[in-house]
Design a protein around this nucleic acid. Structure first.
Lengths: 245, 245
DNA sequence: GTTTAATGTGAGTATAGTTTCATATTTTAT
DNA sequence: ATAAAATATGAAACTATACTCACATTAAAC
């Protein structure tokens, strides 16, 4: 029988505390360690990070936890990602995990938030780049980008919102309504003349859900009847026709 | 302190075992008591009903359990629907519940299956009724019907698949691919001449997900920018344009 | 070097819910 | 009537896992 470790005893070391060796000093206190840490989840006490890691090793710990959670959820779903398992894979004690995240959901929330912010950035840039082109040319590019990004984060955009009711609303709504609304609206204004739908808000709503609905369904079923390129082509076709014919 | 009941003791009677009074005899053994009981879930041992109720009172018990689960889930979500709570509201002991359903998920599966079968029936009839009309007229009617039915069963089509990963695939795929495929295909064949998309399968796939994607998103957000009628109009518009322009 | 703050640890607790099972009751068969 | 089968019961066992806490270790401050 292996003797149980005494409390508070250290486990085996993780590989490295990051690429740094000399710079062990923390950033300014209050500095944001995680992308998006300060964004909008703070308001919800249940989901807000519990405390800000000040030292480098602490930031590394948090990063390990998030990466671990990401990989487990991506592979086996939210259920399989028990807090103990997440901590284990992260090479961190369960206690450390709860040092930074007040609940399991908070970890999911952090993942969603990072992904949403990241995705919104990529998309905004894409849309802005296409702004001068006509609808028929820009739409496929934008839709291709949306497909790419939802594929990359599919476990976050498709799986998590399903399995974590509390987060359900967040991901879809946050993306568009908070981060991209102005950009998208600018895009529609740019093409106002070509668009036949009288109410721009309605046009935006319908077009958005045509695109996202079709893409998500496509990613869900590993759909046999159609390829990535065909999907982009067809959905673009549908949207452009809807807006302009 | 109220004396705890002894084991196996009977609780207060439920109101009635149904409208029957004279006919207490069971249907032929093997007869299907629940709509869809025999359909397709049987293959999955985890979700298959545990045993077939032979007597009238047993069928009533099963019905009470399903109605109870339905109402609790619709009102408070799958989480809130603990098996004890379901049994309680059904006016049935927890033991009886497990007599017919091997697990909580099995109850959800039964609900989904009934709803899907029911919805498919309604939709099939609707499509067949519209078969002779041109696309521009039939499409809005069909989409109106889809909206109505997904609204009616929204907790099953939207909530359950999210909260019960195992069922996620079922509801969407079962509806179309198993129950409606032939009907829908007939509908497309009927309008073959008007449809510009070369590959019918592709057209079906894209159109389906345009419709369902937009409708589900609409039902999700209690969307402010658009009404039921507008949604039907716009989505029909989008689909018809996609198919015919 | 000493003190203090930050971070890390993991056995153990708490709780909440699913499922079982020995037994009671009711219905059907004989 | 009696036996057998079907159905019903609910306290308790079982399970699972999120989360705490008393303490250990490491880094920063002095």
């Amino acid at each position: 029988m292996p003797e149980p470790r005494k409390r508070g005893q250290r486990r085996q070391k993780r590989l490295k505390p990051g690429p740094k060796t000399g710079d062990t000093r923390p950033g300014k206190p209050g500095e944001t360690a995680l992308p998006g840490e300060k964004a909008m989840i703070e308001t919800d006490t249940q989901l807000a990070p519990r405390k800000v890691p000040r030292q480098e090793r602490a930031r590394f710990t948090v990063e390990c936890i998030l990466r671990s959670a990401e990989s487990i959820i991506a592979k086996n779903g939210y259920e399989a990602a028990t807090t103990n398992h997440i901590a284990d894979v992260a090479g961190v004690s369960i206690g450390s995990l709860y040092q930074y995240f007040p609940s399991k959901e908070a970890i999911a929330a952090a993942l969603v938030e990072n992904a949403v912010i990241n995705a919104a950035d990529v998309l905004r840039e894409c849309i802005l780049n296409q702004l001068s082109k006509p609808l028929e040319l820009s739409t496929p590019e934008i839709i291709r980008q949306i497909l790419a990004i939802r594929k990359q984060y599919s476990f976050i955009f498709l799986r998590l919102p399903r399995e974590v009711p509390k987060l359900g609303k967040l991901s879809r709504q946050m993306t568009t309504e908070k981060f991209l609304y102005n950009t998208i609206r600018a895009y529609y204004q740019q093409h106002r003349a070509a668009i036949k739908i009288a109410d721009i808000e309605v046009a935006m709503f319908v077009a958005e859900h045509i695109v996202v609905g079709a893409i998500d369904a496509y990613l869900d079923n590993n759909s046999p009847v159609i390829t990535d390129d065909e999907l982009v082509e067809q959905v673009s076709d549908a949207v452009v026709k809807y807006l302009t014919k």
